[in-house]
Amino acid sequence: MSDTPGAGSDVDDAAAGSGDASDAPDVSDRPPIEPTYSGHDDRPHLSQIQRQQTPYTESQVIMSTVKVVAPFALTFGLFVTFHGADSPGGGFQGGAIAAAVVLMIAFAFGIDATREWFTNVVVVGLAVGGVLVFGGIGLVGLVDGGTFLEYARLPIPHPVKYGMEGVEILGIAPIVAGVLVGLFFLLAAGFDDRDGAGTETEIADATTDDATTEDDR
C-alpha cells in the first residue's frame, strides 16, 4: 500500500496501535522522559499527549536481517545468471532471484521506501534495456543476411557462445527482473475505486502507468 503512514521505520513498534485516543494505554509503557520546563507551561509535554494513532512501523529485526542477506542473495542471483551453461540457472532464474531480493527489501522496509530506492525509471529501464539488447543481438544476424538470433554471424570471437551468453545475461535477466518487480509494485499499489482518493494514490497511479507500459510490450 502506498498510503501507509510511516511505512518503513526504524523500529518494531506499536503496529496494531491504531486504537482510539480514549483507549490508548500504549502511551504508558513508553520509556518516561524527564519533563524539563522553562516557562512553557501552556504547552503540554510530549509524554502527556495522548497519541491519536500509531503508524505501523517495520520490524527492526527483519530489516537488519534483510540488510545482511540482501547483498549475498543478489550476488547469488547474478552468479546464477552468469553460470547458465554449466549449472542450473541462466537469465530467467537469475533475474527472478534478483527480483526476489527487491521484493524482500520491499517487505522489510515498506513499499514506499523501496520505491524511492528502486525507482520506476530503473524498473522500466531494466525491462526496456533488456528488450533492446535482445532485439539488437537478434537483429545483427538479420542485417548480416542471416536469420534472427543467428549467433554465428556476430562480429565477435566465439560468436555462438558469447552471443547466447549476451542474450541471457543482458537481455533475459533484466527483462525478467524488471517485469517481476514492476508487477509486484503494480499489485502493491492495489486498486482504489473510491471517489476523491486521488491524492493518496498518486504514486500508485504513476507506477500503474509505468507497469502497464511494460506489460503492453
Binding site: 500500500m1 501507509t4 511505512a7 503496529a15 496494531a16 505501523y56 527483519i62 534483510v66 521484493l103 524482500m104 520491499a106 517487505f107 522489510a108 515498506g110 513499499i111 502493491a188
Partner: peptide, 15 residues
Amino acid sequence: AIAVSKFTVERGGVL
C-alpha cells in the same frame, strides 16, 4: 515467511 506474515497483519493493509 516475512511476506505472508506481514500480509496477515490487517490483511495486507500495511504492505
